[in-house]
Design a protein around this nucleic acid. Structure first.
Lengths: 344, 344
DNA sequence: ATTAGCACTCTCATCATGAGAGTGCTAATT
DNA sequence: AATTAGCACTCTCATGATGAGAGTGCTAAT
């Protein structure tokens, strides 16, 4: 790829910046006016022409200003964006909110979504962290009405699964506790495969419970991701990019249809990348729904053990420096919180 | 209120029906063409004039067709809508989906949201059912790393709350189980108030756990509603009513800001109404955000004990008969499921 | 009581017009 | 050799005029 001169880099940056601000094509004259450049509009026009030939800018119509192309944004994000760290006032405000809220993932996840949405003025996406190696931690059986029993299964990592079991006959809480203890003894810290491989048992109740445990563990294994928190939908609906939405190729489809989003997440951001922020600009040829959008994602938690994804989806025209900083910071915060409160 | 003649009722119904279909003002000529009426357009015009004077119809412009007013819709829903029960094929399809899915509220709630959204082509709203009298059912303490202990609290009704406790020193699982059993003995089937009123205990660990239990129970009491499931957002975004959305008076605000929605629900649909469907047309003067919208809600579960809310939000111009039927049917289904699987 | 007939009104799509913003090119300037 | 002033040209967009279409209200006839 041909090199860009310093001046071309500046102009590209300014076009990106100005277009982010106004959502309009940027003309040579208005650019030098806005930023008090020492060069003439004619020079800017020549440079813009070059940038257009290189594929970084594009004209919506023959005699309109220029708009960055996807390639232009990619170059900008890859080479030009200034990675300013978040102002410490903002960091403090955010951290404060987390440490002031009630402890527990249940509270932190929606809070993270809310913070991301507000700071980025885009839609935030936060998935609950999820164990990569599902293992049994603890089981409890609780007597309810009649022969129905509530099974509560705690996984290593602290996730909880519940299910209602129907026994053949009525059992007392003491009997159930004893049964649970038996199961705990057998299964503690084991994976589905290990539990499946155990020698079959004869006791029909024990068998019933073990089958349910295996069921629940397999189910947890199958889920690519757990709960999902979104926030800030109204932020993007007012953006011009989203006003003429065709129901079928709208980015909203991605947010509403869980499998699509899981696919996007799993193909974009890998568990081992914790700390890194991925910026996906314009669907990259794979996601038609993201034509005019950018997704900024990061992974948080503990690599290869217990991690989730968080980030934002917004118009391609977004303040990249700030957005990337916020996503990174919230990711770090959530990683710390998860590590501090991990069950193992 | 002045009475309507049968013919006026028919014409009002047809205007509502036609406008629901086309989203356009309805003219006298097009009405008789569309429905093969035996009367002339002039007669229809006279009747429409009467209906307009009574406040049931309105003309967007001096010489356009008529559109139903809020009052018009209210009269229609109150007196004219045909309460056709859902076609049995549809009922079967829906019921089938519920009985085929995995058991458990976690699966039924999003399923209900999905069914409602698809059937009504509007946004569905489903809140998890919630105990009105929060009472202790069962406690479990689970040893984790170091002196951190996972507290799992099961409420009557089957809701589960969890919290991480930090003890002064490290305890074995046996010790913790014993402690939990003590607490279970003390608290079983009691409310927060009853537990608070107990004579203070000396054992510091027991005290710590009891305080946490009281904390969690109070928290559960405070929540007006639990988790919230939405689906079908894209359905309404494509409707003309929602295209020119002002960020601040858009119905979306209601869906995004939880307190607003809780307020709407608690003021609209009461716990004792289970079985009844409430139709709120155009905000009724209270909710500015619902100017062109209708909300159809019902309560499901067990009256005054364990109930949640479900329904849809759509444009005021909606197929009321069908929507009401679907909401009622899904509500009944969910009531049955909740009752069958209630823990007590 | 109903309806045919008609003048009138209002919207909407279409077209022409002109201001404004921007471009590319060429010749002059640094 | 790079930069810039100058200029003709292009394209959009807001504005206003025009006419077809749909609908109304009123009056007189049925």
């Amino acid at each position: 790829m041909s090199q860009l001169s310093d001046r071309q880099k500046i102009i590209l940056s300014l076009v990106v910046h100005e277009h982010t601000r106004t959502a309009q094509p940027v003309g040579s004259k208005s650019l030098i006016d806005q930023y008090n450049l020492r060069i003439s509009s004619a020079t800017v026009r020549n440079e813009m022409n070059m940038l257009e030939e290189m594929g970084f800018l594009r004209q919506p119509h023959t005699s309109a200003g220029r708009v960055p192309t996807e390639e232009g944004y990619r170059f900008f994000v890859g080479n030009l964006v200034q990675h300013t760290s978040l102002p410490s006032a903002t960091r403090n405000t955010i951290a404060h909110q987390f440490y002031q809220s009630r402890k527990g993932l249940d509270h932190w996840l929606p809070l993270a979504a809310s913070v991301l949405a507000n700071q980025s003025q885009a839609v935030s996406i936060v998935t609950a962290p999820h164990s990569e190696n599902i293992t049994f931690k603890h089981l409890e059986l609780i007597a309810t009405r009649g022969n129905q029993v509530l099974l509560v299964l705690v996984l290593v990592g602290g996730e909880i699964q519940q299910q209602i079991l129907t026994f053949d006959s009525i059992h007392s809480q003491e009997q159930l506790s004893q049964l649970a203890q038996q199961v705990n003894h057998i299964c503690e810290n084991r994976s589905v495969e290990q539990i499946k491989a155990l020698t079959p048992v004869n006791n029909p109740n024990l068998k019933l419970v073990l089958e349910a445990v295996v069921d629940q563990l397999s189910l947890a294994n199958k889920l690519v991701t757990g709960e999902l928190y979104l926030d800030g939908l109204s932020n993007i609906l007012s953006e011009p990019e989203f006003t003429d939405l065709q129901a079928d190729s709208s980015p909203l489809r991605l947010l509403e249809e869980r499998p699509l989003l899981d696919d996007l997440i799993s193909r974009t951001v890998l568990s081992e990348d914790i700390g890194g922020v991925r910026v996906l600009i314009g669907g990259e040829g794979t996601w038609q729904e993201l034509q005019n959008c950018t997704v900024v994602l990061t992974r948080y938690g503990i690599p290869d053990q217990f991690s989730g994804t968080l980030g934002v989806l917004g118009p391609m025209r977004m303040p990249y420096g700030q957005t990337i900083s916020v996503v990174r910071y919230v990711g770090e915060l959530m990683s710390d919180l998860v590590i501090e409160n991990l069950i193992d």
